[in-house]
Design a protein around this nucleic acid. Sequence first.
DNA 1: AATCCTATTTGTCCTAGACAAATAGTGAAA
DNA 2: TTTCACTATTTGTCTAGGACAAATAGGATT
Lengths: 302, 302
Amino acid sequence: MLRINAVERDCGLPKDTLRVWERRYGFPNPERDANGERVYPDDQVRALRLLRRLIDAGHRPGKIVGQPIEALARMASALAGDATDLAPEAEILLGVLRADDAERLRELLSGMLIRLGLRAFTAEVAPVLNQAVGASWARGELEIHQEHLFTEQFNAVLRGAINAARGAGARQERPLVLLTTLPQEPHGLGLLMAEAMFILAGCRCVSLGVQVPVGSIAAAARAHHADILALSFSSLMSAAQAHAGLAELRSVTPVAVEIWAGGACAGLRAREGVRLIRALDAIAPAVENWRARACQSSGAAA
Amino acid sequence: MLRINAVERDCGLPKDTLRVWERRYGFPNPERDANGERVYPDDQVRALRLLRRLIDAGHRPGKIVGQPIEALARMASALAGDATDLAPEAEILLGVLRADDAERLRELLSGMLIRLGLRAFTAEVAPVLNQAVGASWARGELEIHQEHLFTEQFNAVLRGAINAARGAGARQERPLVLLTTLPQEPHGLGLLMAEAMFILAGCRCVSLGVQVPVGSIAAAARAHHADILALSFSSLMSAAQAHAGLAELRSVTPVAVEIWAGGACAGLRAREGVRLIRALDAIAPAVENWRARACQSSGAAA
DNA sequence: AATCCTATTTGTCCTAGACAAATAGTGAAA
DNA sequence: TTTCACTATTTGTCTAGGACAAATAGGATT
């Protein structure tokens, strides 16, 4: 049973939207507490999470808000493939998570990292694992604390690897990459994965962590003389917000600084002055491309 | 010139609050666009940022909302005492932060860690640094992105050390400690410092990260068969919230699980069934004490 | 197929009122 | 003097329903 602001946090649906859906579509249909304030039962919150995912994936609210949860679940599993054709790693991972086995989770993740290496782990396996956990959580199969445990351990393993990679005499040249997320985006895993890929590409990286105000991002880009501003957008962020944030950021950031955006956010699109990096594996070639251009223009300047 | 949702993001003040301040105090006093929607001039946004800071520091909105910006700036700089009696390390750190030198910041922190060792670094130096950065930020001497950079780098260094300590064949015995924070507490540094101390004391640690709902914390404690639930409270959290959260948590957690609370939160007090750990250095003795008690009671049972 | 136009859908803003939780202020008791 | 209980004020967040621009769908036309 959650209150409206908790639902806003958990499902990423603004309060106004929750209220207007209730008025228009009759769903959600929260109970009321002693003060007449909305209280959302758990099953409705689960349905709202599914709705959020489906809408991000292109469904229209008018068609799906109010449908029974089974129908929503069917549509959700239809769009992201269902649990039967999960990668075997993801299958094992979900089993370990459901068993609350922190020890084995750590071994599993660091084992994969060691076997595959940082690049393959980050670019190929990590997104699959993340997506599997996210989908499982949206289906209500995972407890909140299990999802948190995954996030925390994944974070720890990846950060350890990044530290090691940075320490291991890797070259750290230009471009200087400043990594962060917009204020609406509290999810830091994507950022960390991107940092790993940039480090592997031999870039100097400075991460500001998550949720930095647009004005301060621009100030940081100037202060650090960044070449590239890398922004991460998780699947929980709406395309509209991302778009608006990027527009604002672009308008206050020096034109010499490139803005690269990436992440699992569904409707994320390139726009004037913002480069879209769809997959983590696209980072390395994009960096090479940047270097080629930088070399050319410095040659031309000299 | 920002719209209301941009101000919400940038200043961290909810839309409802912005509107009700306008109604009650006559400030902010935004212009209107062609649709009659609020548009906030930059200077008012700056004032709102200062107000946010001052209110976090304990001022009351009714007294300060609407004051001229110079007065607000004066109060902000008067806030957290001045910078004359800082520890020398903190002095250097703040200099590096203000110079936006990410490279040297990393070297500085990891250098301190290597020289002092994990225990002394975590328990003695880290709190001083944190407090210095927090105070400097409250005085408005640091940009938001500079504070974020510190947090991020500190996090990276400490997490690296924790990984290393855990990997280095340290014993990991009972008590099994589950670390997390309440939903109102998004600050994770304190948690990480606590984890370091527990690891040094030879405990098995499972961290859930920050902001886990109370019900889910209790579920996790059961699922992991935790001996101790360690909660961290930063100085930004109100004592009342902490107290209420701890009460609720205690009531839904098995009595066999001890709850330990700590952190920089000012009014944090011990209560029925909750142990207060004031300083990080108190963790190791407390763990020894727990082991002695566990040994006794298992001896008595046998 | 691509482009334009119109109708519908949809999110976000608006006003103004209400009320509980948090905080300050006051007075009584230790 | 300090500590506690009680009352008054302050303050954030909720509510309702209305409005409208931006986004999208569905046809019609090139």
